[in-house]
Amino acid sequence: MDTRSSSMRAHARGAVRPTLLAVVAIIVLLAVASWFLIIQPHQELMMQDAGGHPSTPVSTDKISVPPPANVEAMDVNQLLAEARKAMNDHRVLAPAGNNAFEFYLKALEKQPGNPVATDALRETFPFAASGAEQAINGRDVNEAQRQIDLLAKADPANYTVTILRSKLDAQRKLLDKEQQQALDQQRQQQLAAEKAAADKAAAEKLASEQKVAQQAEPQKPTAQAPAAQQQVAAAEAKPASEAAAATEPVLIRTVQPRYPTQARRANLEGWVVVSYNIDTDGNVNGVKVLDAQPRHLFDREAVDAVERWKFKPATRNGVPVEANRQQRIVFKLNQ
């Protein structure tokens, strides 16, 4: 009886061992098939959406690529395709309106929770943040602000956004300080030039008065000065009368500058200092930007407005003459 039982148990163990090996082999085959059929294609798709390997350098250059037409009408698949194309071109955050982050965010607006867009934004966030920091270091504060706003939309709770905003605020304060120092220096130079001109005019007037007095001194003993001496005195007094006849240009028509749409959407204010010439017809030409805050944001609108101003020209002895002036154009919201 014992011999028969032992034989049956040994036979059972011999039957279980091949079955266990078969089960293990099936599990291994399923794991390999899952890798090649599911996991690897998904990773390749994610790498394509992210523009390649995550270590690929992110370029912050504003690549000049025309944006696709009618982005609002695109479906989710089209937006993901445009985002993938932008990532391959390293257009992660720039240019505005034609970058991967904006396309992914548009896709999430149309399909909240889309896994491809969500994963792509999460994986590329650190490298996009590095690009925004480069814009800050390059002192392109408006572009940096736009990129930080995109990062905040992608991941509002990410502490990196707070750090970038602090760096941008510090850069703005530094730029404001430098620009104020430049304006103060320019103002001091202008005041010094005006004072020098006033001192020169006063000295010339005093010299002219002394010369006239010296010429009139010999005429005291006689009741009537010779006609030749009277003509000399009149000639010496002529420059003073000519100076009195000079007039400055008078603004008779002004045109308010257009407020840039980008600045209005971003709630940005600023100013532009321009110089310009006024010809003998009272028209403005030769408008140049001397300084601006922020740089390059309001320049074009300020120049376009000043070029359409109209003046009553300056005159000398009743004759129109050209003049040069400077003007500070202020851009302020809700004015």
Rank of each mutant, 00 (worst) to 15 (best):
R122H: 14
L93F: 05
V76Q: 09
L121Y: 09
P68C: 11
P126N: 06
G131N: 01
T124L: 05
V76I: 01
P112L: 12
P112K: 09
M87Q: 05
V71G: 10
A129M: 00
T124R: 15
D75C: 11
A83T: 00
R91S: 02
A120F: 01
G138N: 15
L93H: 08
P66Y: 07
A129G: 06
F103C: 06
S130L: 14
D75Y: 03
T124E: 01
K110T: 01
V116D: 04
V71L: 14
N99E: 10
P115A: 10
A129Y: 05
K85S: 15
Q111P: 12
G97H: 14
V71D: 06
A69F: 03
N77L: 10
G138E: 14
T118V: 05
N137G: 13
A73N: 14
M87V: 06
P126G: 07
M74P: 06
L108F: 09
L80H: 00
S64W: 10
P68V: 08
S130Q: 15
V92F: 03
E133V: 10
A81T: 13
P66A: 15
A73P: 08
P68F: 00
E109Q: 15
F125S: 04
L79Y: 05
K110A: 11
A107H: 00
P112W: 03
F103R: 06
Y104V: 02
F101Y: 15
I136T: 04
V116Y: 06
I136V: 13
A94F: 13
L105C: 12
A81R: 05
G113M: 09
R139G: 09
L79R: 01
R84M: 09
L105T: 08
V76E: 02
L121M: 04
L93M: 07
A83L: 08
A107V: 03
A86E: 12
A96W: 10
P95R: 07
P126L: 12
D119V: 11
P68Q: 11
V92Y: 04
A117F: 04
N137T: 05
A117W: 00
R91K: 13
N137C: 06
S130R: 08
S64Q: 15
I136P: 08
Q134W: 05
V65K: 10
A120E: 04
F103H: 02
H90D: 14
Q111V: 07
K85A: 13
N70P: 07
P67T: 07
P95L: 08
G97S: 13
